[in-house]
Simulated assay, not measured.
Amino acid sequence: MEFNGEFELESVPPEKAWIVLSDPIAVRNSLKGCKYITPKTDEFSFDDYEPEEDVETLPEADPDDVAARAFKEGQDYAALMQVGVGSVKPRFETTVSITERDEEKFIMTATGSGSASGSSFSMESGMQIHPLEDGDGSRIEWWTEADISGRIAQLGSRVINPVANKIVGNFFKDIERQMTEVNEETDSSITDRIRGLL
């Protein structure tokens, strides 16, 4: 299954959009059904991990904290997703690997796979932030290709697509809200400093 799209932010420059999309906490907060996204070590256990609650994001968060936890190329992350699809509400234990992260071109790509009771998936996804030709805004292009098997796949695209589109729509709506707040309330020197630390 393939999903792709783009959206524009008229007043948020690519540099600030990039910082929000580089923050696993900001991404988690915007992704409905996502319980956490955290660096994955060899000792990591989905059953034992307890995510930290009420973690601040920009504009309130400490810039050093945001830079320290930002997605890193080559790093594996554990993500726990629970999303209702039809009558099924699987708990996906997912491993996501950041395969590319280009600070200059604002490109990030990732691969991932996950499993739940009777279902599994693998995916490749990415995004690129482009400056708008007129003005200081951004155009964010994104794409995902996913292979789904098992119980969820049997529901078919007629059931899966509306759920996926709703998750994506809600995600970008919330990300846009966060980006607008960062743009309005965070001085450019702070976002420049974070980019320097990334």
Rank of each mutant, 00 (worst) to 15 (best):
M123K: 01
D47W: 04
D47M: 07
Q154T: 05
K35A: 12
F92Y: 11
A116R: 04
F121A: 04
W142N: 07
G150R: 01
E52Y: 07
Y49F: 14
F44Y: 01
F7N: 04
G5Y: 01
E133H: 12
L21V: 07
L198T: 06
R69S: 09
L80H: 03
V96S: 02
T41V: 04
T191S: 14
F92I: 02
D47F: 07
S87C: 05
L31G: 09
I152R: 00
E184M: 09
I19Q: 04
P14T: 08
I175L: 11
S149F: 03
P13L: 04
F7L: 11
D76E: 11
A79Y: 02
T109Y: 05
K72D: 01
G86P: 02
A17F: 07
V12G: 02
S113G: 11
I37A: 10
S189R: 12
E104G: 10
R139A: 11
S119H: 10
T95Q: 02
E10Q: 12
F71A: 06
F172R: 13
E133Y: 09
L197A: 09
D47K: 10
G126T: 00
I107D: 01
I167L: 15
M127F: 10
S138N: 06
L21N: 06
V168F: 15
L197W: 04
E141V: 15
T186M: 08
C34K: 05
V163E: 04
M1L: 11
S97P: 01
N165P: 13
H130K: 02
A164P: 10
L58H: 00
R69C: 08
S30T: 08
E50K: 15
L155F: 00
R158E: 08
I140T: 03
N170H: 14
I140N: 03
I175M: 12
G169H: 13
E185C: 10
E60K: 14
T111I: 15
M179N: 06
G84T: 14
D48L: 14
D187N: 14
R101V: 01
G118N: 08
S115L: 08
Q128W: 01
N183T: 02
L155R: 00
W18P: 08
V27G: 03
R195H: 12
G84S: 15
S149H: 03
S30E: 04
K166Q: 15
A26E: 03
R139E: 12
F121D: 01
S87A: 14
R28N: 09
D147I: 08
D192P: 11
G137H: 05
I25K: 06
F71T: 04
T99I: 09
G118S: 09
S188L: 07
S138L: 09
S157C: 01
